[in-house]
Amino acid sequence: MTTTPTSGTSSLKTYREAINDALRQEMRRDPTVIILGEEVSGGAGCAGQDDAYGGVFGVTKGLMPEFGRERVIDTPISESAIIGAAAGAANNGLRPVAELMFFDFIGVCFDQIFNQAAKFRYMFGGKARTPMVIRGTVGAGWRAGAQHSNMLHPVVTHIPGLKVVMPSNAYDAKGLLIQAIRDDDPVLFLEHKIMYDLKCEVPDEPYTIPFGEAAFPRQGTDVTIVAISNMVTRAIEAADLLAKEGISCDVIDPRTVSPLDEESILESVEVTGRLVIVDEAHERCSLAADISSIVAEKGFSSLRAPIRKVTAPHAPVPFSPVLEDAYVPSVDRIVNAVRDVLGA
């Protein structure tokens, strides 16, 4: 269960502020929590202002002034060294939160993630503990082109030993990040860059949200929609449009994709008999394909229509705005998929 904050106060916070809150509160609570990455403060060695960026999206702003450069470490542009240092430090008494400015950069440092950090616990007979978090920005929508816009969560979800967290709103972002920092395994915390300014009510006190427990932003009985990360907002929008036509959608946000709350998805499909999965990643060998296979295998008798997947096409992310807009799954495509599984 979610740990409830002790005081009742809360305020409207952006996704960015909620993440900053989680980092600040955990760093105050636990001196072994450190942050390292490129421009996490910014201005290192420069004549101008310190903390010039606070991360290129401003997520870690203000942390270096409070905790100092010893705990908020601007690094050279060396992703393998950043992730390796985080993993090694995690084995040796620290709880590092490493930042990959764009999660696309796992291409540069993937060995340190999948062949090193992910395997220590198992490979060393349960003797190693690797309490590290890798924060990274994912997703399209910024016109950032093919090398800065990927949704690579299926790649890391495939790897045993890694936990993969994909918050879709500010409330979940704070609770899940605090949970991630306190977790003793390597956790990939993936922030969709299109969501940084989205606001919702967020408790001021620290709280945690356990991994593997889905959220249910809309409840319904006709069709189950499982949506990931940024797509949750669009799924809710689609569900609200369909509700006006009398179609009742059960929107499930898994929040963490590894571990995955299979039970909630299967229970929902048992009621609805129909499933639409929405994910901005490509379809092949993806999370959408994975959830589809789980339901086909374990919930086959509940299904009353073929499962539909609404994903990005099997293409790199294009730069041109008209192409990028066509690339990202739209509310229209979700609505049409729901109608399709209803035979409407």
Partner: peptide, 12 residues
């Protein structure tokens, strides 16, 4: 002199 907003003297 700058890798993004970090001084080259710091990062080298």
């Amino acid at each position: 002199g700058y890798g993004e907003g970090t001084s080259a003297n710091y990062a080298l």
